[in-house]
Design a protein around this nucleic acid. Sequence first.
DNA 1: AATGAATGAGTGTTCATTCAT
DNA 2: GATGAATGAACACTCATTCAT
Lengths: 192, 192, 192, 192
Amino acid sequence: MARRSRKDEILQAALACFTEFGVDATTIEMIRDRSGASIGSLYHHFGNKERIIAALYLEGTAQYAAQLEAGFTNAASAKACIELVVTGYIDWVVANPDWARFILHSRGRVEAGEMGDALREANRLHVQRMLQMLAEYQRQGAFKAMPVECFFSVVIGPSHDFARNWLAGRTQAALTECRDLLAQIAWESVSA
Amino acid sequence: MARRSRKDEILQAALACFTEFGVDATTIEMIRDRSGASIGSLYHHFGNKERIIAALYLEGTAQYAAQLEAGFTNAASAKACIELVVTGYIDWVVANPDWARFILHSRGRVEAGEMGDALREANRLHVQRMLQMLAEYQRQGAFKAMPVECFFSVVIGPSHDFARNWLAGRTQAALTECRDLLAQIAWESVSA
Amino acid sequence: MARRSRKDEILQAALACFTEFGVDATTIEMIRDRSGASIGSLYHHFGNKERIIAALYLEGTAQYAAQLEAGFTNAASAKACIELVVTGYIDWVVANPDWARFILHSRGRVEAGEMGDALREANRLHVQRMLQMLAEYQRQGAFKAMPVECFFSVVIGPSHDFARNWLAGRTQAALTECRDLLAQIAWESVSA
Amino acid sequence: MARRSRKDEILQAALACFTEFGVDATTIEMIRDRSGASIGSLYHHFGNKERIIAALYLEGTAQYAAQLEAGFTNAASAKACIELVVTGYIDWVVANPDWARFILHSRGRVEAGEMGDALREANRLHVQRMLQMLAEYQRQGAFKAMPVECFFSVVIGPSHDFARNWLAGRTQAALTECRDLLAQIAWESVSA
DNA sequence: AATGAATGAGTGTTCATTCAT
DNA sequence: GATGAATGAACACTCATTCAT
């Protein structure tokens, strides 16, 4: 934990490999080659491959969640909040495409591993904080009535779907061009 | 030498293994054990593991697409069409959860493999046929103006997102309970 | 043993495969593809892969030996005989390069297999007949004194060596251009 | 972690297996058993079976070539040179029969593999150096005029042929007994 | 004589992980 | 903290051969 080194170098190298070859096809050897670290060093810092994956996943989602929650404190209305969920997500994906692609495809794997509980707990807290911040608007009747799981899928689902396609290179349209439209539709979809 | 056999038995066994262990963690040996076929027979019919995956993927998407397109011919309005996209999807997922989970997680892999072109071509044709069937309503101004990729993500994105969570056991709410709500929101989101 | 069929077709296909891929890298499947016969037919005629190899080997050496011995009966002198051994060999190699290459590389394999004894016996008889035909000249003192194994190596060794290189594409010079020179040197090397 | 080890131990074990079972019939498992190395170590050092074969081949031919070229610098006449080619070869074969047998039978295989270019280049240089050392005698008219490829086959062909038979156990006569005779004949065959 | 689906032991190779230095 | 040679269980896949039709 010197500057921002070794551990981070390894994580960056791992992400680059995951992007290029896929998580399963990436070997420890590849990460070693790209990071410049030795195999021993790699294991010294992370213990095993699964923990590299989990570290990358948890750091990514934590960063995204922190950024989103920070934005929320400045949002002045229910509409601003919902739009922020969408634009914040899209902005983060555009700024961190490799990380986003990795996270979008590795959730199941991390959930199934030894850090699954940590992930679920982090997620539960994030959702809880989001709900708290929206609670007042909710009480004021700003939103359509619907199951909470449905609510989040309606808000962020189109963006997830579009982002997946965009990150896979399956789409002509730029993600940024649809940013505001997706935010607007999200609000319309859940507002009362 | 049963009725409709060997190849299908292998495919069913493969899907069961993929569901239980994940695609990567499933070995040929496991598929052999569960299908009752010999390794030789397995390779006689499919050639390699990747082709088992691709066959399962392509058959699943083809079946879903055929069912959806069949429903479209009976849909009497733009609203009915859009709602059908959502309800048809959800119904198929509920009826074939293992297959749906597999397809939701293996697209990138199949796209990257030797059947990638076949997949893309099948997909292109499906999208083209869908657009043709919606073209008349579109001309009548039934829909908001937006990029076509955005349109599909807005319609089906929430359902994809919800289905992913539901299939992963991350949700309390039943998928079927949200079926009509999601269909209704999809129509509101894209209608002019 | 109808016309000159099936069995021969299989043998020809096998030789073509051996030439293109090597004996070990050639699979029964490849021979089946190239011959048009079914796997069953292939096994009906030959029983196993080793016997295809042996059949091809023995037929090739028998044909060469027969041709050489036929020529010997017309040779009028010790010199003519020795030269014939060389020119006959080179002519046969030039006329049957694939067969020659196969034979040059598969002797050990056939010797080690179930037809090893048959091969050795055929060879013994061939050598014996050759020696008989040379016996008179030998008695007349036409040749240098040397062990019989040495004698044959001296006569045919340079041609074997050159033919190996030529068949492997390692030589610029044409085999035919050296034919008479090699024959002449062979005679000089063994004549008293 | 012995003296001059692992890699050499593996090479020695491989050669012993090739001698006993043949190159194709030798499995990595056999080499592992005989060398005492683990499979992982084997692959750590050589990467794959083909590279074990190539290493053994190239080291053998390099050793022989070096020995021969060293002898050449002390040869005082054209005759001495030509005889040395033969006697040097025979001596090396007698001293390293397993290695010689392996080399005599694996050239095509190595040429066809990834080290093919390295082999051809090493060979080209060796031939070039030999020709340089003979160039002066050649200018003095010591040799019969003939294509260079023919020249080498005439000199060494009988020895190659005899050595092949001897190494395969097909000959009664000892190789050493024919050594000087073969050398003498080689000189007679190419001298002007 | 012919067919080809089925078999399964055996192969080369991979790769996460360990551990002595 | 760092190193990298060594390990070996596990894997996908091959292919000669069999046999019911």
